[in-house]
Amino acid sequence: MKSGGLVAVPDRGGDGAPILDEAEGESFAMLQPFVGIVLGDSDAQESGTLYITTRRLVWLSDRDISKGYAVDFLSLSMHAISRDLEAYPSPCVYCQIENGDDEYCEDDEDEEEDEVANGDANLSKIREMRLVPQDPAVLDNIFQVLCECAALNPDPQGEREGEGEWFFNAEEVMASENLERGMEGLEVQDSRFEDAEEDPEDE
C-alpha cells in the first residue's frame, strides 16, 4: 500500500462519523470532539471532531458536512505535543506528513493538472498539521493513541526487498565465492572453445 499523504474526506456515514474500511479491519480507536485543525503554515483554525482509527487519523469539520481530512499512519512520519505557547499560541498535537510520492516525482505535472481541476490536490503538498483540542488535558491521550495506532501500521515488508543484496551468514558468502571459483574452473577446463581463441585472421 502506498502512503498517500493528506487526503480529503468529503463523505461521512449516517451517524456523522467517518466511513470505515471494515473489510480491511479498520475500527475506531478514539473519538475526540472540539478539536481544531490547522494545515501547513495557515493561521486558519477550523473546529471539528477528531477520529483516530486503527489505520488513519480523520478529522471532520463541524461546520461543513462535506469537509474533512484524513492521513493514514503510513504517511504520518512524526507526531508530537506542543505546549510552548511562545512558539505556538495554543497547546496542540503537531504532526508531520509525508507523501509516498515525494522521493520519486517532485513537481509532478499531473499534480499541477489536478490542482486546476480540484483545489484539494493542494492537500498532497501539506507537510505539517496541528490538532488543537479545546481542552488541552486531552493532548496526552491523543498523543498516546496515535503512538499505539502507528505501531499497528508498520510499512509493508515488501518495500524493504530489493534495497540491496545482503549476505546474512558466512555460508552464503562462501557459497557465492565458491560459485565464482566454480565458474572460473569451468572456463579453464572447458575445451570446447579452445580453438576459438583470438585468431587475428578472423578479424
Partner: peptide, 8 residues
C-alpha cells in the same frame, strides 16, 4: 514548540 515526539 515541541518537547517530545514519536517518529515513525
Amino acid at each position: 514548540s515541541v518537547k517530545n515526539c514519536f517518529i515513525r
